[in-house]
Write a protein that binds this DNA or RNA. Structure first.
Lengths: 377, 377
DNA sequence: CGCATTTTGTTTAGTGTCGGCACAAAGAGA
DNA sequence: TCTCTTTGTGCCGACACTAAACAAAATGCG
């Protein structure tokens, strides 16, 4: 098989494949219909077992939640949205989310080997507390990992080895989106991947180094929102002015284009829709978009100078910006980074839907990837 | 021995110790004079062999160079300064430097197992080219690693296994200083160490993650000089204004204190001496120092928000600043970082003399540390 | 001084991983 | 059908490490 050419002999590869097959993670087809090579005995075809175990991935936002079962390789097996208000008690909300996930597991009859929660807030490590879950009206510092774990325990979801309950993992949603983009999206193959993006308010960042999320010493790295991108810009609550946070988020676009902002929980959609629908026809929208691109470019250039990534992927409104005029954005970044070479880093739009969910699943899959036999079987 | 308690059995530890002793890297004293434990058979005392092999570490600055032989553990065994002008031909300069190193090796009769060169310039990886060796009047993009390697070959310095010549390593001088501080100085034990410091002009940064230098995808990371620390500051050649580079370097201190700047190649000493000699007596010096501390604090806070290190070590003039009023600096950083927790990162002055040299040696030692028997023996 | 105790170095046997190698198997092409 | 090519698989050995038993070097006590 071709996979033998990643530094391992055929014998070892066969042993590993047999082990993974016995654990139900992959399927081995000894007689593939379409042989890859031209001559010789055809390779066995390895594929993720579509009926294999899954992890439970959940996400919460200000007006609802979503639970999904995700197989190895990031494939969403089943998903269930939950609408309605998210109240101020994280235990009640997560209890409902986990109940939805448990229902999905019952319906599909899948075995669950882990659970991940994409939190719309900075998450402090190693405690797993949400430092600013402001959009959710949760208290700052809520121990979301422990709460999530408790909900899983109470829901009685059996863990990989039958008895012990599944392990809870949590992470910031943009960090997890970055992980997903690195594994299965626009960031595939990058060694130093920088992801920057917006939600409805503010700007977040994430960094994937050699395939692993870099969250700093206490989970608080890549708070990129307060880079200065306009010395004469509006004052920011951080004490400075012209921060990336307030100059390049959806509200900034609407302001620059002279449009009234709608409800807080749909600013992203509103701004994205504005560009898509009126960029070609409305000069004010074009100007506003260009302004945001220039400022985003300044911020990215600052990050390039510090992090020197080999790829940048943009999410949220920033994804729309690079899709609208990528040349302009790349030009600003190249002009304002110190070395032309590091400034010529590819800047791509994100490609994954539900990337935070897939990233949360990746987090929960990680122990299995690190040591399949130790977690299962 | 106590070292057996780092995840390895006594049997393995003994085997490793015997191997390292046979390679001449360490000495084993079975009857230490001062036993560490109180009861039982005393541990053998392991120590770096003071007569063991060395690496050649060299450094070049605008008015001279320095060569040193450095043993395992960062101990400088022999050193030789070289004064005089550094001309525009890197091959000639490095030839002279290497000749000085070869002379040291002859005098001491040491075996040389590698060579490292601390370059006062950004170094592009993996080519090993110096992008802005401006203070040296070398051309931008000079292939300093290849030149260094060629000089070593021509000097006929025998390599670890006798025949093949020693391998050349190069790195930016502040990056190497950071590595040295992490291994043997104020950064020991930090998992995410940020180092920031000045030379005579400008500001540099370096990051050591889990014991390894993080230089980005092409060696150009941690170019921290163009973070905005004063929106109303002086314009910078980068196109912005109020950059860390021009607001916190030695020239900035002299300007702020109303002193005339001396020759370019002694700005650091002049500024440091000014603070040490007149901070207590001269209000203008106190004000200028405080101004630089505030601006440095702003820059560090920006870096803390992005990198979330667990320790910061300052070098050059910044080291003097933290020694002079560390409380003020730490206060600014805590105030301006987003999370009080990540803002409370310890900020320490560097402790090593010749830290760039030691870091260059560390780079050259790395292959031996990774695989002693593969390189030697 | 002799002996038990404690702690550590060393030897030996056992285990698990992985590469090398030979052979078998499964196709393509003549 | 035979040969060639390519890949899966079983077997052996090298290697690294652990566990356990044993030997050695100190302390403390009678």
């Amino acid at each position: 098989m071709l996979t033998a050419e990643l530094g391992v002999t055929r014998a070892t590869a066969g042993a590993v494949a047999a082990e993974l097959e016995s654990l139900g993670l992959i399927t081995v087809d000894p007689h593939p219909t379409a042989p890859v090579g031209s001559q010789g005995r055809p390779s066995h075809r390895l594929a993720v077992d579509p009926d294999g175990p899954v992890v439970l991935a959940v996400q919460v936002h200000s007006d609802g939640f979503r639970a999904a079962l995700v197989g190895l390789g990031g494939r969403i097996v089943a998903t269930a949205p939950g609408c309605g208000t998210v109240d101020a008690d994280p235990a009640r909300v997560l209890g409902e989310v986990v109940a939805t996930g448990a229902e999905l597991l019952r319906e599909t009859g899948r075995r669950c080997v882990g659970a991940g929660f994409a939190v719309p807030s900075a998450v402090a490590e190693p405690e797993g507390t949400a430092l600013n879950p402001l959009h959710l009206a949760w208290e700052a510092g809520a121990p979301v990992r422990d709460i999530f774990q408790r909900c899983l325990d109470e829901a009685g979801i059996p863990g990989p080895s039958g008895r012990p309950p599944v392990t809870a993992f949590t992470g910031n949603d943009l960090n997890l989106a970055a992980l997903a983009e690195h594994r299965h999206g626009a960031g595939r193959g990058a060694r130093h991947l920088l992801v920057v993006g917006t939600g409805h308010r503010g700007v977040g960042g994430a960094l994937v180094l050699d395939g692993r999320l870099h969250t700093g010493s206490s989970g608080l790295a890549l708070e990129v929102g307060h880079l200065t991108v306009d010395p004469e810009g509006r004052p920011c609550h951080c004490g400075s002015r012209g921060c990336l946070d307030i100059e390049t988020d959806p509200a900034a676009l609407l302001t620059a284009a002279g449009r009234a902002a709608g409800p807080e929980s749909s600013l992203l959609e509103q701004a994205g829709e504005l560009i898509r629908a009126e960029y070609d026809s409305d000069q004010a929208v074009r100007d506003a978009t260009g302004l945001l691109i220039d400022r985003l470019g300044l911020g990215l250039a600052g990050l390039v100078n510090i992090l020197n990534p080999d790829r940048i992927v943009l999410a949220g409104l920033h994804r729309v910006l690079v899709e609208t005029d990528g040349e302009r954005l790349r030009g600003v970044v190249a002009d304002r980074s110190l070395w032309g070479r590091s400034g010529s880093v590819p800047i791509l739009p994100g490609t994954l839907a539900h990337n935070s969910l897939v990233g949360a699943a990746e987090l929960a899959w990680q122990p299995v990837l690190d040591d399949p036999l130790g977690v299962l079987g």
